[in-house]
Nucleic acid binder design. Structure first.
Lengths: 116, 116
DNA sequence: CAGGATCCTTTCCGATACTG
DNA sequence: CAGTATCGGAAAGGATCCTG
């Protein structure tokens, strides 16, 4: 799902470590807190909360708490969040992917030089 | 010079803290190590070296050492570096700038809500 | 002049445990 | 379930001093 956005090599980043992936995960609909943790490799609740709070503050994400027990909270993208996701996927990830071969080759060449 | 790329609020980032600014500074020609430090608010040599090394390794920057005493080292953008700079300025910074008002308003509204 | 070496602070992030 | 609280390690970034 994140083939084009692997943070291992991507030089262009958005928000913190999880912001981009959260945008993608929420791209096709609302998700609950626990549902989000799965595609995010079981990121700890603390960190996920921090990322979601920041995104909510920036107007990218909307938090909807359904009353009752057990609690049920859903996160979804705002209109700005959707635009941010499009920009991230179509522009940033696309550009990262397109330049990746050049960067990798440059790194290999550099490493060859310094180790020599 | 960095009006559209202020890292205070920019959600989209490139490389480390100084990468974007270095790209811009080298945009209109080669610069020496010390020359680079000025527009970068006297970033310490250690950090600047780290950033430049990473950019050199990624094939964004070319390092040219002119022999003699005192030493003279010039940094310039590679072709990939120029393309990266264009992408950064025209696409990333432009997008940051265009969404900035919305983000700031969202933040203000959020802060008003939580402090209330 | 162009950095390398050291030390230190800050920030990010993960692990674990607990709660309404 | 959806978090919060606390702790600890790792990494980023900066201050200061030193060197070819």
């Amino acid at each position: 799902m994140f083939q084009n956005c692997q943070d291992v090599v991507a030089p262009v980043r958005i928000g913190d470590k999880w912001t981009g992936k959260i945008l993608v995960c929420l791209g096709d609909g609302a998700r609950r807190f626990s549902e989000l943790r799965v595609p995010l490799h079981m990121v700890t609740p603390k960190v996920l909360t921090e990322s979601l709070r920041a995104m909510e503050r920036d107007g990218l994400v909307r938090r909807t708490a359904h009353p009752g027990v057990p609690p049920r909270v859903e996160y979804s993208l705002t209109e700005l969040g959707h635009r941010m996701r499009e920009f991230f996927m179509d522009t940033v990830c696309a550009w990262n992917a397109s330049t990746l071969p050049e960067v990798l080759e440059a790194r290999a060449a550099y490493d060859r030089r310094v180790s020599a």
